[in-house]
């Protein structure tokens, strides 16, 4: 007899397994975002310098990471390093490396944009009041930079969470892979499970990403000037 696809979800620990997969997804994304923020801020500050060598190098890095599909980067790190240098990294570590490379580049560009978008007059107005350079940065420049930075940085986080679905292809068992396993396991007893499982995964992604992108939009609105 055939089950309704939805029942598969509640058999055994299937739902918990899906949540476990989601946790792997989130772990890779959040660790990568965390490291990207830490590395991206100094990178962005470097990118505002006029030095042509630094400018060219950071530009090449940014463009390379942006133009390369993330999947190719994942393959390069996971399979390429193993082939060429006998470096065997786990799938998760490879994923964190690739997403950090990508996130740092994007973050750096965001920081650069936020910094150069503060008009010179803001510095002058602060100086004209008698504020020291440190006070100008502390009270005027950094608060404004952060306000411009936080919404796009949050958006970057959601993009990263979604893009982690690629790591299936280097053997990481995250939420999508768990879903496929459940579908495969019940192929004969519940052939319609696929639709249900993917729908649940859709909802899971939505539950995670929607509040984040709402937060970004709210902050953007609040800080608009």
């Amino acid at each position: 007899m055939q089950d309704l696809g939805i029942n598969v979800l509640f058999q055994g620990t299937n739902f918990l397994r899906l949540l476990g997969g989601l946790w792997i997804t989130m772990k890779i994304a959040l660790i990568s975002v965390g490291i990207s923020v830490v590395l991206g801020i100094p990178l962005g500050m470097l990118m505002t310098l006029k030095n042509p060598v630094i400018k060219t190098l950071t530009r090449i890095y940014l463009e390379f990471v942006r133009i390369m599909p993330q999947l190719v980067l994942l393959f390069l790190v996971y399979f390429g390093l193993a082939r060429a240098f006998q470096i065997n990294l786990s799938g998760q570590l490879s994923a964190v490396i690739v997403f950090t490379l990508w996130g740092t580049a994007e973050m750096g560009d965001l920081v650069r944009g936020a910094l150069i978008s503060i008009p010179k007059h803001q510095y002058d107005s602060g100086a004209a009041l008698g504020l020291t350079n440190l006070q100008i940065y502390l009270h005027i420049i950094i608060p404004q930079t952060l306000r411009r930075l936080v919404p796009p940085a949050i958006n970057l986080t959601t993009r990263m969470i979604k893009t982690t679905s690629l790591v299936v292809l280097i053997g990481v068992v995250e939420v999508l892979k768990v879903g496929q396993q459940i579908i495969e396991g019940n192929r004969y007893t519940a052939p319609t499970a696929a639709l249900w499982i993917y729908a649940v995964i859709f909802v899971l992604y939505f539950i995670v990403c929607y509040p984040i992108s709402r937060l970004a939009r709210r902050l953007e609105k609040r800080w608009k000037n």
Binding site: P119, H121, Q122, D124, S125, G126, A127, A128, L129, G130, H139, I140, P143, Q144, R147, W223, N225
Partner: peptide
């Protein structure tokens, strides 16, 4: 600069 007040053309209040 505390003794010299200055007001600019482009009204530069601190927006935050």
């Amino acid at each position: 600069r505390q003794k010299i007040g200055m007001v600019f053309q482009s009204y530069e209040l601190f927006p935050h």
